[in-house]
Amino acid sequence: MTPDAKRDELREKIEAGERRHAARDLAEAARDAAESATEFVKKHPLATLGGAIAIGLVIGAMTKPGRQLTRRGGKLATLVADAAIAYGVSMLEKAGEAATQGQDKLEDLGDALDDKRRTVRREAAHLASTAADRTRSAKRRVSRKTERAVRDLRTHFTS
């Protein structure tokens, strides 16, 4: 097998490994996000329920029947709607913070993958260079030995 073929085969193996590694890391990140959401719901069931109610009230307050009910219900309904909206906004802010944290983790993961890719590529280049050096060295040794053998044969048959 030629050094170029070996180098190409090594590159293909490296790229396949990088693809497998990237797919596994993305799957793990998605699994972690699902687990953290499940943990939040288990730890804070009332907050989750309150958030769902608040979001429902906010959406309801945006519809025509919801606005009419708010006018009829008076100040208490207005206070409840305002509280629900405030709670909904705080939950959305928390969700935004969680999304930002997830994005940061994905960026860190991408950086780690990029670092690993560079390391593997650098090591592959080193291995290819070492193989090329050894091939050149072996070629020189074989050439010298062949020249000496031919010289010895000429000397032996001419004398």
Rank of each mutant, 00 (worst) to 15 (best):
1 M>N: 06
1 M>H: 12
2 T>M: 05
5 A>R: 09
6 K>T: 05
8 D>A: 03
10 L>C: 09
12 E>P: 13
18 E>Y: 04
19 R>E: 14
20 R>C: 10
23 A>F: 07
24 R>F: 06
25 D>I: 02
25 D>C: 00
25 D>M: 04
25 D>R: 05
27 A>S: 15
28 E>Y: 08
28 E>W: 12
28 E>R: 12
29 A>K: 10
31 R>L: 10
32 D>Y: 13
35 E>Q: 15
36 S>D: 15
36 S>M: 07
37 A>N: 12
40 F>Y: 15
41 V>S: 15
42 K>E: 11
42 K>S: 11
44 H>S: 14
46 L>W: 12
46 L>V: 14
47 A>E: 03
47 A>P: 05
50 G>H: 07
53 I>W: 09
53 I>P: 02
55 I>D: 08
55 I>L: 15
55 I>W: 07
55 I>F: 09
56 G>I: 07
57 L>H: 04
60 G>K: 00
60 G>Y: 05
61 A>G: 15
65 P>A: 11
65 P>K: 04
65 P>G: 07
66 G>N: 05
66 G>R: 03
67 R>Y: 01
67 R>M: 00
69 L>D: 03
69 L>S: 02
70 T>K: 02
70 T>V: 07
71 R>A: 15
71 R>E: 09
71 R>D: 05
73 G>S: 02
74 G>N: 04
74 G>H: 04
76 L>V: 04
77 A>C: 10
78 T>I: 06
78 T>V: 06
78 T>L: 09
79 L>E: 11
79 L>Y: 06
81 A>N: 00
81 A>R: 01
81 A>E: 01
82 D>A: 03
84 A>I: 02
85 I>C: 09
85 I>S: 13
86 A>H: 06
88 G>L: 01
88 G>A: 06
89 V>D: 15
91 M>H: 10
92 L>C: 14
93 E>S: 12
93 E>G: 11
94 K>M: 13
95 A>K: 15
96 G>F: 02
97 E>Q: 13
99 A>K: 08
99 A>M: 08
100 T>N: 12
101 Q>P: 11
102 G>V: 00
102 G>C: 04
103 Q>H: 08
103 Q>D: 11
104 D>C: 13
105 K>S: 02
106 L>Y: 07
108 D>Q: 13
110 G>N: 13
110 G>R: 13
111 D>R: 05
113 L>V: 13
114 D>Y: 05
114 D>G: 03
114 D>V: 07
114 D>Q: 06
115 D>I: 11
116 K>T: 07
116 K>H: 08
117 R>P: 00
117 R>L: 06
117 R>W: 07
119 T>N: 01
122 R>F: 10
123 E>G: 09
125 A>F: 13
127 L>C: 10
128 A>S: 14
129 S>N: 06
130 T>Q: 11
132 A>N: 02
133 D>L: 15
140 R>T: 01
144 R>D: 04
146 T>L: 08
147 E>Q: 07
148 R>E: 12
148 R>I: 05
148 R>Q: 04
149 A>E: 04
150 V>G: 00
151 R>G: 01
151 R>C: 00
151 R>T: 02
151 R>W: 01
153 L>V: 12
154 R>N: 10
154 R>I: 06
157 F>Y: 03
